[in-house]
């Protein structure tokens, strides 16, 4: 299970989802390098949203994950159990069938996307 990121040839910063132009350096840095990474990282912040927009169930766990390669990505979490989520906690990111980023706590190795 990997996720796609881009890295800037000039500043080396990672961006998820990948971009052709580095948002930090601009077009002068040339096209970025696209690569697939494991999606391991740690929790930068999180919230349980009780007033999500139409089409989403409340409560909704949103987790901001900082990847080991650098770069952050906002993910949907499993709202069944939010007690394990904490800033700095281990996190694993995958992309679900609808193309959305998903958070799982790295500890639960058995957890696999449907």
């Amino acid at each position: 299970m990997t996720i796609d990121i881009s890295k800037c040839k000039r500043c080396g910063r990672a961006v998820v989802p990948p971009r052709d132009i580095c948002p930090y350096c601009g077009p002068g840095a040339g096209e970025t390098i696209h690569l697939a990474v494991a999606g391991e990282g740690k929790v930068a912040s999180y919230t349980v949203s009780y007033m999500p927009p139409e089409g989403f169930n409340s409560p909704l766990l949103l987790v901001l994950v900082e990847l080991s390669e650098g770069g952050m990505v906002l993910c949907l979490g499993d709202t069944e159990d939010t007690s394990h989520v904490r800033i700095g906690g281990a996190a694993s990111v995958y992309v679900d069938r609808e193309g959305r980023y998903r958070y799982t706590p790295q500890a639960s190795e058995g957890h696999r996307p449907e």
């Binding site: 919230t47 949203s49 989403f56 906002l74």
Partner: peptide, 10 residues
Amino acid sequence: EAKLGGTPAA
């Protein structure tokens, strides 16, 4: 953000 159900409040 919006695709995941994110809102300005979230």
